[in-house]
């Protein structure tokens, strides 16, 4: 019998924060994706690079026990940052430096990116590369620059969807 792996969706750090903080504009979409995973229709990939950005809870205590508990859901797969991720991250960081590419930069601003966001920073690049290397179907993020790169380049080149969470019918049964 052929084994088929479920679709992999990956989360940017803002999704984990948005979930824990129950941000009103995000909670529905994020819990929808979690429930899809909990019901076995997808796996949730968490790039190891995202975890170091989340350090402290509201009462001042360390965030890592909460993160560890979250990571123990069986539908979560921690995605290691290995050699392939590092090399691709370096390549994409170099490629998506738009400081010398006014045409693409203008497109990014028109898409809704802040005018001072002119290049893919190393953490963005590592999280994006992790999603690509592990062949994720989507990278869920609210970051406009990542979403712009997704719409303009990444979806057609790597088959990776980069967008805010869908609120329904992400994985129709």
């Amino acid at each position: 019998m052929a084994n088929k792996s479920p679709a992999l969706i990956t989360w940017d750090s803002c999704c984990i924060l948005g979930l824990f903080n129950r941000e009103q504009d995000k909670i529905a979409g994020l819990t929808y994706e979690l429930r899809e995973c909990d019901e076995g229709r997808a796996l949730l990939g968490i790039a190891s690079a995202t975890l170091s950005e989340i350090t402290r809870l509201a009462d001042g205590s360390a965030a890592h026990p909460s993160l560890e508990l979250f990571l123990q859901f069986p539908f979560i797969q921690l995605l290691n940052s290995n050699r392939e991720v590092g090399l691709l991250s370096s390549k994409l960081g170099h490629r998506f430096d738009l400081r010398n590419d006014p045409e693409i930069l203008a497109k990014a601003i028109a898409f809704g990116c802040p005018s001072d966001q002119k290049r893919l920073k190393s953490k963005d690049s590592e999280i994006l590369s992790t999603a690509i290397v592990y062949k994720a179907a989507r990278l869920t993020t609210y970051d406009p620059f990542l979403r712009f790169l997704g719409a303009e380049f990444i979806r057609s080149e790597f088959g990776l969807e980069i967008d805010e969470p869908a609120s329904s019918l992400l994985f129709p049964t």
């Binding site: 750090s13 803002c14 903080n21 950005e53 809870l57 965030a63 909460s66 953490k123 970051d143």
Partner: peptide, 24 residues
Amino acid sequence: MMRPIPTPDGMDSVKYIRSLRDGE
């Protein structure tokens, strides 16, 4: 059960993460 992770006043998760990454 989830306990919140504070972000500076006026910043949602997206702006907060952006501020961390832009600080590099």
